[in-house]
Structure formats: C-alpha cells, structure tokens
Amino acid sequence: MRPFELTAPATVDDALASPGTFLAGGTTLVDLMKLDVLTPHRVLDINALPLRGIDAGDGLRIGALERMSDVAAHPGVYPVISRALLQSASQQLRNMASIGGNLMQRTRCSYFRDVATPCNKRVPGSGCPAIAGANRMHAVLGTSDACVATHASDLAVALVALDARVRLVGADGERTVVLADLYRTPGGTPEVDNDLRPGELISEIVVPRLDWATRSTYVKVRDRQSYEFALCSAAVAIDVRDGRVVDARVAVGGVATVPWRLPAVEAALRGAPATRASFEDAAAVAAEGARPLSANAFKASLLPRTVVRALLEVTEGDRA
C-alpha cells in the first residue's frame, strides 16, 4: 500500500469540494490499495455523510451509505434485491459494504488485481491476458477484444431488472440516471467502467414501484454454496395471472461485462403460458450473441438453464 492522505468530510458539499477517492465500506477500495492496483493520494471517508435511510413507501429509496446487510433485512425490499444481497460476499463483508459502493465495485478479474500482469482496464493499452489465459470466470456477453472482465455485483443485476435509477450529486449539481445506462461495456476503453463524472457521488438508489415484483427471486450458480462470485446468476420478477405471464423482468450476472438485461427473453415470456416448456423456449435466446472464450463456453449453456431455474422457482405452485 502506498502512503495516502485520509480526510473525513462532514457534508456532501465538503466531499464534492475536495477531489479524492471516496471510501465507504472500503471492502473493494482497501483491497485494491493493498494490491497496489489503486494508488489514490487522497482518500475521502464519506461515512459521516447523511446518505442513509431506506424508504419503502412508493417504490424504494435507499441511501447510498446503507449497508448491504441492513438493506437485505429491510421488510419493504423486493425479494430479488434481498436475495441478491444475501448471496453476496459474506455476512462480515455485507455488514461493512455500502450499497453505493457495491454498485461501484471493480471487476474480480485476477489480471486486473495483479499488477505484475498486463490489463487494459488497469493500464490502458497494456493488453488482456484473460482472452488467452485463465478465463473460466470471465464474460461471454458485452465483451470486446480489449476486455472480457465480468461485472461482479449481484445487487446491480437485481436493480437493473427492476429499472432502478441512481441519484448522483456532483460539483455541477444533481442528476438521476437509469442504472443500466450508467454502466459501460468495455469496447475500446475498458478503463472506464461507467459514466460517472469525476468527483460525482452516488447519493441514493431509487427503485420504481412494481407491485408484482413481490414475486421475484435471484438464483446464483457458483462453485461453492456461499462466499463466491457467480458463474451465472439470474434476477427475475414475474407477473402471472390465470396461468399466463402478463409481464416479466429478467437480468443476468456472472456472464457479462455489465449487469445484463434480457429484453428478448422478457418479450418471449409476455403472454406465454407459465409452463416449464415456455420458460425453456423463452430462455433459449438468453445467450444470443455470446462470445465464448477457451474456458467459459459452458456459460452459454448454463445461462438459459439458470434463467429457467429462476423462473421455475419463482412460479412454484403457480404454473399452468
């Protein structure tokens, strides 16, 4: 770790006035500083800022500094959100990590985390060893020739399925952005993860009201039962009436460079009977456009299976 200056602004204005790297739970930032991947000169501890509170009145508003564990335990949170959170990291990490920081966490690509190797996301233009290297955990969707790193957040997948927005505050004022639009696929500039402007801070997450999202779930497929990132995950919410799917939301994780919404699957589900067969038909297009690497071609097969499993679980006892 390199020496750095640590300050703790008391107000949002103070935080925005002094350039630096924001520290909330620290569960990603401190790790990456220890690994010499991030070497900020100034770190701003924002934990004293008034970005707290969970309001489940009309939709859901979550202060960016709320801890993952508190959000997961809140009774007004849609099941897909709490399940995504409860399958993330470990209890200890969930007690530390903030909800805004979760959305900003960096990829777990082992080359990104190892300064002895090239990485286009860490050092633009240095190359991507994952493409010909150890890429079992990497993405098959949204990739480019420069980067195939997977987005690691489970929560973001659930939020993208629910059309969540984030409220951002910056020196130029406030704005609200659809979360799915905030993330950037790597293209030729993998060093840019998102459209956050320099110095901008997430203040709040807003989930629009979706009454039928009380029927939702998050299925996470991984190499062990807990404390491991997804090989593939699926966030689904579904509106079933009289054995037919009225509407559905489907997003997947662990397979793409950004949280990956599946509008084609949603479209195929709409109006279809709530049966295993139609779920399978709808999920068949889930991996369309997948670009498998040497060790992760199985994800193209696992992805539709994960979607089907999630749909089956969430409609248990209510299928046609």
Partner: peptide, 24 residues
Amino acid sequence: LEIEESGRPANGDFASYLLPVNAD
C-alpha cells in the same frame, strides 16, 4: 491451484482458490 502457461498461479489467493465454506 491453476498454473497458467506463464507459470503464474491463476488463483493464488483465498478469493479464488476455493475451499468449502460451512454451507458446503
């Protein structure tokens, strides 16, 4: 422990060298 062609361990830390957790 997965050794890459370069000789570098691809998973030389407890985040990626998996051991069972209690839930397993």
